[in-house]
């Protein structure tokens, strides 16, 4: 009998022998969605450069993906990705990182590059907590939740990340949860093909640091909760802000055609050359 090999195994770095994710973590689902999207498009990992920051989600491409990967400092992957994309405009550049990385410490790079509408895919894996450091509150941790740095409950409002990136000017924004692996895979395919800043927020369950400590429950309970709270943009349009408070608006929220930065840079260079010639 021949050895059974997972069809996506060829995308995994040969030196990687095990996963570093906790049992029940949603990041494995996201990992599969990314690789299925790339496989589905008939692409190769050599078509990509992956960039990640610090945190659990940053460990999806680093070290799993057998590709060019830059694992960077906390909050800055999009800024590093900017330089990579400018240097290798024909490669697909994909940033995979968490909500703390991209929205707390790195929030400015997120909105500034959405504004620039530079072609890259940014996957923000939102688990609503700092998992790697042991369950501290994030700008995505719902009000009132007890965490290790908010033992009496969080006292801050949260970011609606997808709305933030839409407002900043990204040309593609989608939001899904780990309970929507097929829809997520399809949106990643679209994001890869998008000429512009393509952002996908993925709610991903963290049963260990979020579920266990906050009493929300196991991975299964968290996924059930995601499903219950998810609502389409069409249905959401009928509800008030108050009614939407605990809901997750899932779907492709924005898909626009607008000037993309690399194209504008190309025109600028032609102009500069023309002026001196």
């Amino acid at each position: 009998m021949s050895e059974l090999v997972h069809p996506l195994h060829r995308f995994i770095r040969p030196s990687v022998k095990y996963s570093t994710f906790c049992p029940g973590c949603g990041d494995g689902t996201v990992t599969q969605a990314i690789l299925r999207a790339i496989d589905g498009l008939g692409m190769n990992l050599d078509d990509f450069v992956f960039v990640s920051g610090i945190g659990c989600a940053a460990w999806i491409p680093s070290p799993f993906f057998n590709a060019d990967v830059l694992h960077t400092t906390h909050g800055r992957p999009i800024a590093f990705a900017f330089g990579i994309k400018m240097g290798l405009p024909d490669k697909k550049v994909m940033v995979v990182s968490g909500d703390g990385d991209l929205v707390a410490i790195g929030g400015n790079h997120l909105i500034q590059n959405a504004r620039r509408n530079i072609e890259m895919v940014v996957l923000c894996i939102n688990n609503g907590i700092y998992g790697m450091t042991g369950g501290q509150a994030a700008p995505t941790t719902p009000m009132g939740i007890r965490t290790t740095t908010t033992p009496y409950g969080t006292v801050e409002n949260i970011f609606n990340i997808s709305r933030l990136v839409m407002a900043a000017g990204a040309s593609f924004v989608a939001c899904w949860t780990a309970a929507h692996p097929k829809q997520l895979t399809n949106s990643i395919k679209k994001a890869i093909q998008k000429k512009g800043f393509a952002f996908i927020e993925v709610f991903s369950q963290c049963p260990i640091q979020f579920g266990r400590k906050t009493g929300v429950g196991s991975a299964v309970q968290m996924l059930e909760d995601y499903k219950k709270r998810s609502i389409s943009p069409k249905e959401a349009a009928k509800l008030s802000e108050e009614e939407l408070k605990d809901r997750i608006v899932v779907g492709e929220l924005v898909d626009l055609e607008k000037p993309e930065m690399l194209e504008e840079v190309k025109k600028m260079k032609n102009k500069a050359r023309g002026e001196v010639e």
Binding site: V49, V51, L70, T72, T73, R76, A79, F80, A81, F82, G83, I84, K85, M86, G87, L88, N108, H109, Q112
Partner: peptide, 12 residues
């Protein structure tokens, strides 16, 4: 972000 982009471009 300036130095981050410079490092990224150097790796490119």
């Amino acid at each position: 972000s300036a130095i981050a982009a410079v490092v990224g471009a150097s790796w490119a």
